[in-house]
């Protein structure tokens, strides 16, 4: 979009939206939508609250553990599936089911099995994230040009070297794509898990703020979680852009 002949960067439209938000909030049209400036002010109250710090730590721990396991297991499984046809044929059906299934339905079952605590949240994050990571890794490994692998073998590469020097690098664009989608899903898993459990972490705070209609704090929390997910996704995006130069010529 151009104004007076000068190109306006797209992200500025967000400023416009924020202005709209402010106006809507001030007019008290819906009590649900407080002015943006109030949300920013609420930030200080929320952040200094000890409960908040605890909640964040608990959530980050759960998220970190769940994502860590999902990453390691997902990539390994994906590579295995990409290289060994038998594994692929037996597992790909399940992969395709779970990558799009409403996994939220499983969370109550997880609560029943693992109890109402941190473990359930970790398992939720793990389950939400792992399928897409595996699927994308598998796609990346399968898409490797066969002559690249033959080349490595023809120059005497050992099995290990083929994996570390060729396969992982050649599949890296897809692996990062899977990682990005997995992170997004993982955050969703974190939120869903904590909302359903509702007695700890951010879920507890969400519940608290909405019950007492502390909308400004609630929105701040929402924005925080959104920003977290966005930041993670952008981080991986940055990495993807760094390796884009070769993704195109494979």
């Amino acid at each position: 979009m151009t104004i007076l002949g000068k190109k306006v960067p797209m992200m500025l439209s967000l400023v416009v939206w924020l202005a709209v938000w402010e106006l809507v909030g001030r007019s008290r049209l819906l009590f649900l939508i407080p002015p943006f400036t109030e949300i920013l002010k609420a930030a200080t109250t929320v952040v200094t609250n000890a409960k908040f710090v605890d909640a964040v730590i608990i959530s980050l721990k759960a998220f970190g553990m769940g994502m860590g396991i999902a990453l390691v297991a997902g990539i390994s499984l994906g590579v295995l599936m990409g290289r060994v046809k038998i594994v692929e044929q037996s597992l790909s059906m399940w992969l395709n089911v779970f990558v799009s299934a409403p996994l939220t339905a499983i969370v109550p079952a997880l609560m029943v099995i693992f109890g109402i605590g941190q473990t359930t949240v970790v398992v939720t994050v793990l389950l939400f994230a792992i399928w897409v990571i595996t699927l994308d890794t598998q796609a990346g490994v399968k898409n490797i040009s066969p002559s690249l692998l033959e080349m490595a073998r023809s120059f005497g590469a050992s099995r290990f070297e083929v994996y570390t020097k060729v396969i992982l690098w050649a599949a890296l664009p897809e692996i990062l794509c899977g990682l990005r989608l997995g992170l997004i899903r993982g955050v969703r898993g974190l939120v869903v898990g904590q909302l359903l459990i509702a007695i700890m972490g951010l879920g507890e705070l969400f519940e608290l703020y909405s019950r007492y209609f502390l909308m400004d704090r609630f929105w701040f929390l929402v924005i925080l979680v959104f920003a977290f997910a966005f930041a993670l996704a952008e981080l991986v995006n940055y990495l993807e852009r760094r390796i884009e130069f070769y993704a195109r010529t494979r």
């Binding site: 040009s145 002559s147 690249l148 033959e150 080349m151 023809s154 050649a170 070769y246 494979r250």
Partner: peptide, 15 residues
């Protein structure tokens, strides 16, 4: 080690 192969599609590591 006594044989070296040159590939039709070059097989270069793009990274």
């Amino acid at each position: 080690p006594e044989r070296a192969f040159v590939f039709q599609d070059f097989a270069l590591m793009p990274w």
